[in-house]
């Protein structure tokens, strides 16, 4: 009985040792020499494999970081949108570089063609995909530039950061946005833009991309940019340009002074997450117009969304 135990012990151990030796030599022979830094960098990355950086996955991005680091001596031009500046500086630290922190970006939906602002002119009866509706016609509101509200951006988002607000029929971006740009590519009308997130999430942008002349634009949507140029004249920082009947605010130059918001006659310029303004004498005038209210509402709802998400996290 003992013999059986001893023999099996000995034979199994011998097999084990022999296999170990063989495996060791084979491993030596076929060893892939890889920069150990790749593993370190990959560990520092979020690991979501979202593709936001332009590489298929996090590991490929890590390889690219190490490679460009070796070739160029820096890793400029490579950015992990998910991890942001923090991650990139830790990656840089691993590779022994310094990285200038890029300002965090966020997706911004530049359309305010809500159901009330841009009422339906036709019914759309077809599959729930913007790319098809876009090929079919200018859409239910008649605005050839406006949001179709069928959610291709929502489907493209891997982070649950964008969703359609049923009340307005427009997509809204929440705090989970990592600026990977998937929705920007998915939108057949290029409505979504990556803009600077801003301090305390404060942003000012033209919420319209309609390049039509004033009258036809306004016909389809009450809050369209009509290209009047008032904001351009008002802006003290030359951050606003007017091209093809459309104002555009350069977020690099914008200092968030909010002067353009006040002068916009159609309320096409939106401000987000600012404290309410001090009551001004001209308030009585603006009360006659219904539009400022919707703006305030929108700001509020977005603020609420952000708040809820914060609490959720």
């Amino acid at each position: 009985m003992n013999d059986v135990i001893i023999f099996s012990f000995i034979s199994l151990s011998a097999i084990g040792i022999a296999a170990a030796v063989i495996l060791y030599f084979i491993a030596q022979k076929f060893k892939v020499i890889e920069d150990p830094k790749i593993d370190l960098v990959a560990d520092a990355l979020p690991g979501a494999n979202c593709g936001g950086c332009g590489f298929p996955g996090c590991r490929n991005f890590a390889e690219a970081c190490v490679k460009t680091g070796k070739n160029q001596g820096n890793i400029d031009g490579l950015n992990c949108p998910v991890g942001g500046g923090e991650t990139m500086s830790s990656v840089a630290a691993i590779l022994g570089f310094e990285v200038t922190e890029a300002d965090p970006l966020i997706a911004v939906v530049r359309c305010s063609g809500t159901k009330t602002n841009a009422p339906k002119k036709v019914n759309y009866d077809g599959p729930e995909t913007c790319s098809f509706a876009h090929s079919l016609s200018s859409g239910e509101s008649g605005c050839p530039y406006g949001c179709l509200g069928l959610g291709d951006c929502v489907k493209a988002c891997a982070f649950d950061a964008i969703f359609i607000n049923d009340e307005t029929g427009l997509p809204e971006v929440n705090e989970k946005c990592v600026a990977c740009g998937a929705c920007v590519d998915a939108c057949p009308r290029n409505i979504i833009e990556l803009r600077k997130k801003g301090k305390k999430d404060r942003r000012i942008f033209v919420s319209c991309i309609n390049k039509e002349k004033g009258a036809p634009a306004k016909k389809n949507c009450a809050v369209a940019c009509i290209g009047c140029g008032k904001c351009v004249k008002t802006c003290p920082f030359e951050a606003i340009t007017l091209e093809n009947n459309l104002a555009y605010i350069d977020f690099e130059k914008c200092k968030l002074c909010r002067k353009c918001v006040e002068v916009c006659p159609t309320n096409a310029i939106h401000e987000l997450n600012f404290p309410p303004r001090k009551p001004k004498p001209e308030k009585a005038v603006s009360e006659n117009k219904p539009e400022p209210k919707t703006i305030a509402d929108k700001t509020e709802t977005e603020a609420k969304v952000l708040k809820i998400n914060k609490e959720g996290n």
């Binding site: 077809g126 599959p127 995909t129 790319s131 098809f132 090929s135």
Partner: peptide, 13 residues
């Protein structure tokens, strides 16, 4: 099923 609608999307892409 809206087969052709989706095929059109596919053809475009």
């Amino acid at each position: 099923r809206p087969l052709l609608d989706y095929i059109r999307v596919g053809k475009n892409k």
